[in-house]
């Protein structure tokens, strides 16, 4: 440390959007990036987990099957059955389960050494899922009510009549058809992006304060930064789970709304 104190001070690393702009793995000109590898790998892991947990079909489950059933049952019952309703939910269970576990595994990738990067801090991947969500809930609604019936369901609250409709209809259309995929995408993306940014800031900031600032008095502050980094790391684990949950929950709610008979 004394060496560092004596050494010339270096500029601290300032994390920013460029921290997320990872170059293609195989060099300039190729297209495969680390997030792309991660989403494929963790999708495979998510499927492997679900597959091996479900394969045995034991009436008295072992450990893996028990964990798998708990996760699958959680999505199936609290996100599917309780929100979409016991009449219609079955055909959406694979969709919700795939969505939840893809998000959960990829979000938690941020906590796994060597990966340590939340896959969905990349806007493109999030837009893909938001686009699918938008297509699914609108598609389901149009299939059930027809295009006109569906638009009426989404844009005209029952019981509202008269000139106020001129105001309500565009607002409802905007809120239910246009804004939903945007908020869905931004919520997930921003949480992952900001969380990771915060972690980089505390990690690199602590490193700079301890080793690179050249000021002995900064060292305790740097240690405090690393302590906070650890605490935020655990907070992020919770947020990563919650964002997977919320994204899937909103999908279920949008589907339930599109299937509803009365607005």
């Amino acid at each position: 440390m004394s060496v560092n104190v004596l050494a010339a001070t270096e500029d601290p690393y300032i994390p920013g959007p460029s921290s997320f702009d990872l170059p293609p793995i195989f060099g300039e000109g190729t297209i495969v990036t680390k997030p792309m590898v991660q989403i494929v790998l963790f999708a495979v892991l998510a499927f492997a987990f679900l597959y091996f947990a479900s394969r045995k079909r034991a009436l008295v489950p072992g450990k893996l099957q028990y964990v798998g059933e708990a996760g699958y049952g959680f999505v199936r019952n609290s996100l599917g059955r309780d929100i979409i309703g016991s009449h219609d939910f079955q055909k959406f269970v694979p969709y919700l389960v795939s969505m939840f576990f893809l998000l959960l595994f990829n979000n938690w990738a941020a906590a796994i050494p060597f990966f340590q990067f939340p896959t969905f801090s990349r806007a493109g991947l999030v837009y893909g899922l938001a686009l699918i969500s938008w297509l699914v809930y609108n598609g389901v609604g149009i299939k059930k009510h027809g295009l006109g019936g569906y638009l009426k369901l989404q844009c005209m609250p029952s019981g509202v009549t008269g000139p106020i409709l001129l105001l309500i209809v565009p607002l409802e259309f905007f809120s239910n058809i246009v804004v939903r995929p945007v908020t869905l995408a931004l919520r997930l993306f921003c949480n992952m992006f900001a969380g990771h940014l915060l972690l980089i800031l505390f990690a690199m900031g602590g490193y700079w304060l301890i080793f690179q600032s050249g000021v002995l008095g900064y060292v305790p502050v740097g240690i405090l930064a690393w302590v906070l980094f650890t605490a935020i790391f655990f907070l992020e684990l919770l947020i990563q789970f919650l964002q997977a949950y919320v994204f899937t929950l909103l999908n279920a709610m949008y589907i339930a709304g599109a299937l509803a008979d009365e607005h």
């Binding site: 989403i39 079909r57 990349r122």
Partner: peptide, 30 residues
């Protein structure tokens, strides 16, 4: 990043098909 967007959609679609075919029936049967 457009390749990421496309890949995300494809990966989700594949995962959905696999889950629907291999995971969903097993869990529901159990």
């Amino acid at each position: 990043h457009i390749p990421e967007l496309v890949l995300g959609v494809v990966v989700f679609a594949l995962l959905y098909v696999l889950v629907k075919k291999f995971v969903y029936p097993n869990f529901e049967a159990t």
